[in-house]
Design a protein around this nucleic acid. Sequence first.
DNA 1: ACACTGTATCACCGCATGGTCATATAGTCA
DNA 2: TGACTATATGACCATGCGGTGATACAGTGT
Lengths: 110, 110
Amino acid sequence: MIELVARRFRMLGEPQRLRILRALEHGRRTVGEIVELLQGNQPNISKHLLALHAAGLVARRREGNSIYYSIADPVIFRLCELVCRSASQDAREQLESLTQPEAPTTRGKR
Amino acid sequence: MIELVARRFRMLGEPQRLRILRALEHGRRTVGEIVELLQGNQPNISKHLLALHAAGLVARRREGNSIYYSIADPVIFRLCELVCRSASQDAREQLESLTQPEAPTTRGKR
DNA sequence: ACACTGTATCACCGCATGGTCATATAGTCA
DNA sequence: TGACTATATGACCATGCGGTGATACAGTGT
């Protein structure tokens, strides 16, 4: 169980994959489109897409000669939003504690 | 930005770290307590705790000779719950599609 | 100062994984 | 069938990272 959850998180733990998911946020895209969009090289993108597909995060559909990928599990974006918010807040606090070393607040001591 | 988010996800992408976080879910614990609880070896646990601390996910407080770690960012558990739900649902669907290869439903084709 | 406990650090190994190039495969069209 | 496009696969390298044992460091009590 824990292993499964960890695998999912690991899937989201690569910047390139996050970029790919973001590229799919507003609709399906073919491999080629994503490659061009991210300025990546084709085998790399393809590999990541296959991994995401194996993890059940994206769906895959052949159409003619191309293959369209799309988000299969929208929960992804909620996850990213949560992490994003929390991370940016964290960064802000760290900045504060750097600029004003004296901070007798309750929630410091990180 | 994306790099930061990815780093957070990667932090959650190791089973051992998830176990550590779970051990902290209901309150702070010392390193030794966690080591004993997870049957791990001390340097390993210590390393993970330091990493989690550097990532801002756990807080750290010295008390006498021991060091207490605690959850710094409860959003972690919301993340885990979301992933957990989605993962288990996914697993269920995969099972279904294995047992009944004929599934003319709308949401198949994964 | 010494012994003792708890935690962190160092050095090392092994492995999983991302990036990349070359190449294979599937599909389309003539 | 053959040429062409789109995607996947294989082989390879480099590297990041987790696990582990030995050891250093910090705090406490005597």
